[in-house]
Simulated assay, not measured.
Amino acid sequence: GEQVQYHYGLKDLVTILFYIFIAIILHAVVQEYALDKINRRLHLSKVKHSKFNESGQLVAFHLTSMIWCLYVVVTEGYVSNPRSLWENYPHVYLPFQVKFFYLCQLAYWLHALPELYFQKVRKEEVPRQLRCIALYLLHIAAAYLL
């Protein structure tokens, strides 16, 4: 009946690195088996093709994240006992599901950095995407560490 709690540390960096590789593989799977097939049917121009791929990847990621987040919120009891969110604050230790969620979020957004190179993003688009990635990383890392 006792719940194991986890703290952040240097070993998280190795875990994040591992999940970056998993995110790259999942990115390629979504691209190959879903987005490329839809692209072939739509006959989009090169610019629209690139935008469609970026949007498609983000839709897949955000939809998965939303479902996973709702699952964590329900199974950790934050819906049935919302007071647990602020009782005994600051929460130095995290349940496994919450920690794993944060690490996977960080891994996804860190995987987006080499993807800018692999996807051959246009030079005009790079600053916008870097700003977006940096903001996501900043907010997720701050929430995880604080």
Rank of each mutant, 00 (worst) to 15 (best):
V121M: 05
R83E: 10
L106T: 13
S84T: 12
G77Y: 11
K123E: 06
V79I: 15
H111N: 08
Y117S: 07
L106A: 04
K99I: 08
P90V: 04
L70A: 13
P114H: 13
Y117M: 03
L110Y: 04
V126W: 10
V121K: 03
V74H: 12
N88C: 02
A112N: 05
V72Q: 06
L85F: 14
L70P: 01
H111G: 03
F118A: 05
V73N: 07
Q97I: 07
H111M: 09
E124M: 00
Y102Q: 08
L70N: 12
G77P: 05
P95E: 11
Q105T: 13
V74K: 15
F118Q: 05
L103I: 15
A107W: 01
N88R: 11
T75K: 14
E125Q: 09
F96L: 12
Y78A: 04
A112Y: 07
E76A: 08
V126C: 04
V73C: 10
L110P: 09
H91V: 01
S84W: 13
R83N: 08
L103K: 06
V73Q: 07
L106N: 02
R83Y: 14
Y89D: 00
K99R: 15
W86I: 07
V92Y: 13
V121R: 01
L70T: 07
P82L: 03
W86N: 02
P90C: 01
V79C: 08
L85S: 06
H91G: 04
W86Y: 12
V72G: 07
Y117R: 11
P114G: 08
Q119Y: 11
W109H: 10
V72D: 09
S80R: 11
E76P: 00
V92P: 00
E124G: 01
W109R: 01
L94W: 14
L110C: 13
K120H: 14
H91M: 04
K120T: 00
Y93P: 00
Y93M: 05
L113T: 10
L106C: 13
P90Y: 02
F101D: 02
N88Y: 10
P95R: 15
N81G: 03
P114Q: 11
H91C: 02
E125G: 00
C104M: 15
L116R: 11
P95H: 13
Y89F: 11
A112H: 10
C104T: 14
C104A: 12
L94T: 06
Y89P: 00
N81A: 06
S80P: 03
